[in-house]
Design a protein around this nucleic acid. Structure first.
Length: 425
RNA sequence: GGGCAAGUAGCCAAGUGGCCAACGGCAACAGACUGUAAAUCUGUCCUCUUCGGAGUUCGGUGGUUCGAAUCCAUCCUUGCCCA
């Protein structure tokens, strides 16, 4: 299977420009994807573009990861119904660094290889460009009519929030990136999410008109969830690639909780397993859906790719303790189990308060698990709180020192999956 | 600069003098069911609360009124049209 066939099978191609496949067959091709420095870490939404670059490199082509230092300052209107807030330069610079560091992990930057990955930042070629230069050399080649026809623009013009000149210009800025890379790095291919199609095409158009060259592009579908929810969001917010922001355990759990339908799609997109393996896995899964083989494999593969084998081990261990032995009484957990659980939130309470006995509502509020007593009370009344894995039956429940595990800890749960370890100090 | 519209909770959106902490939907959280799923059902969903209530809201500010999200004035923001 060649690269395009492979990506097609994986369901990673949405739109593709004619001739792209031939170009990739013909020679080692340089290709790029842009990453937005809107946060100091990438989240799992960026995994697909990263994987595209990885596949590309595996197929022997040369990947460029572009950090959008300049485009980040403008704001991409694609998929946005409203004008974006501009980030300050300080924050952008910090974000660029964070994003850059993460990208380094996933691609092979070994300069001795002809197809080593390279990192570029469009801030480098935009920072010294004058406005006059831009409008004469770039703007002249693209008509407003052309730009207005773009979906991202049309939607905003037809909508009722309008769009600033700055965001309108975005597609030219991004288009120029492609042109610059084409001229300076012989980059002939741009990839991206399907929401980027319009911007990408502006780039190829610019290359054609300004340099008379031919450039190619394809996009991958945006990842969706079968239930229509936003991909990559949970109650705790985004799933980040930075283990400081989203622990490997939480990361693993995110994938494990995928629905069957999603898991079938995602296993092809987010893992490198070949067709045969995936087919076999699917068959096994269907014979016993409750075992969730697909989800387990998916979660294991992607956690290893992002965080490494060791992190996966520890995520698995925590999972076993939290869920596989969920019926086991809390008393059976060792101190190491309690303290070592990843994804558990640690809180403290004064030992003498506990000695005297404290009602559950105050306990929840004082340890900061809930911001107010009112909220804590509502959750207790709704049956959403457990102490030492036993459900708290009512608001008059009192906690005291006799409940302490190993004389030190209370294991508290909000719902099924949110664990808190309260240490008496 | 002129004309016209709009601004209500995280989002969408109803409400046009008292019955309004404000219909409904989405999102979110919890419970039941389950496979740590989906679907479904139930509860919560401005803040605090001794669960009796209390406090602060409907772009901002001032006013009319016993009483304002609702009426008036003014300012701000956004969109459309004209210049």
């Amino acid at each position: 299977m060649n690269l395009i066939e492979e990506l097609r099978w994986r369901g990673m191609i949405q739109d593709i420009m004619p001739g792209t496949e031939d170009q990739l067959k013909k020679e080692m091709t340089s290709a790029y994807i842009g990453f937005d420095p809107t946060a100091d870490s990438l989240h799992i939404g960026s995994l697909v573009p990263i994987l595209l670059l990885v596949h590309l490199q595996k197929a022997g082509h040369k990947p460029y990861a572009l950090v959008g230092g300049a485009t980040g300052m403008v704001g991409d209107p694609s998929g946005k119904s409203e004008e974006r807030n501009l980030l300050s330069e300080d924050i952008l610079r910090k974000n660029q660094e964070g994003v850059k560091k993460q990208l380094m992990q996933y691609l092979d930057f070994d300069p001795s290889k002809p197809n080593s990955a390279e990192m570029v930042n469009n801030y480098d070629w935009f920072k010294d460009m004058s406005f006059l230069h831009f409008i004469r050399d770039v703007g002249k080649h693209i008509t407003v009519n052309y730009m207005m026809a773009k979906d991202s623009v049309k939607k905003r013009i037809e909508g009722d929030t309008g769009m600033s000149f700055t965001e309108f210009t975005y597609q030219l800025v991004q288009g120029y990136d492609f042109y610059w890379l084409y001229q300076n790095k012989q980059c002939k291919l741009q990839m991206g999410g399907s929401d980027q199609w319009g911007n990408i095409v502006t780039g190829t158009e610019l290359i054609r008109r300004k340099a008379g060259g031919e450039a190619f592009a394809f996009t991958c579908p945006l990842i969706t969830k079968a239930d229509g929810g936003k991909f990559g969001k949970t109650e705790k917010g985004n799933i980040w690639l930075d283990p400081e922001k989203t622990s490997p355990f939480q990361f693993y759990q995110f994938w494990l909780n995928a629905s069957d339908e999603d898991a079938k799609k995602w296993i092809r997109i987010f893992t490198f397993l070949d067709q045969q393996t995936v087919d076999a896995l699917n068959a096994d899964h269907d014979s016993d859906p409750a075992a969730r083989l697909l989800q387990k494999k998916l979660a294991a593969e992607i956690t290893t790719f992002v965080h490494g084998a060791e992190a996966l081990e520890s995520a698995l261990a925590t999972t076993a303790k939290l869920f596989a032995q969920a019926d086991a009484p809390a008393e059976s957990l060792s101190i190491e189990d309690l303290e070592g659980m990843e994804g558990i939130v640690k809180k403290e309470i004064a030992a003498d308060k506990l000695q005297a006995g404290i009602d559950i509502v105050s306990l929840l509020a004082e340890t900061g698990i809930f911001p107010s007593k009112g909220e804590a009370r509502k959750m207790v009344q709704g049956g959403g709180i457990s102490v030492n894995r036993r459900k708290v039956e009512g608001v008059d429940f009192k906690a005291d020192a006799s409940l302490l595990l190993h004389g030190r800890y209370l294991l508290l749960q909000k719902g099924k999956k949110n664990y808190y370890l309260i240490a008496a100090v």
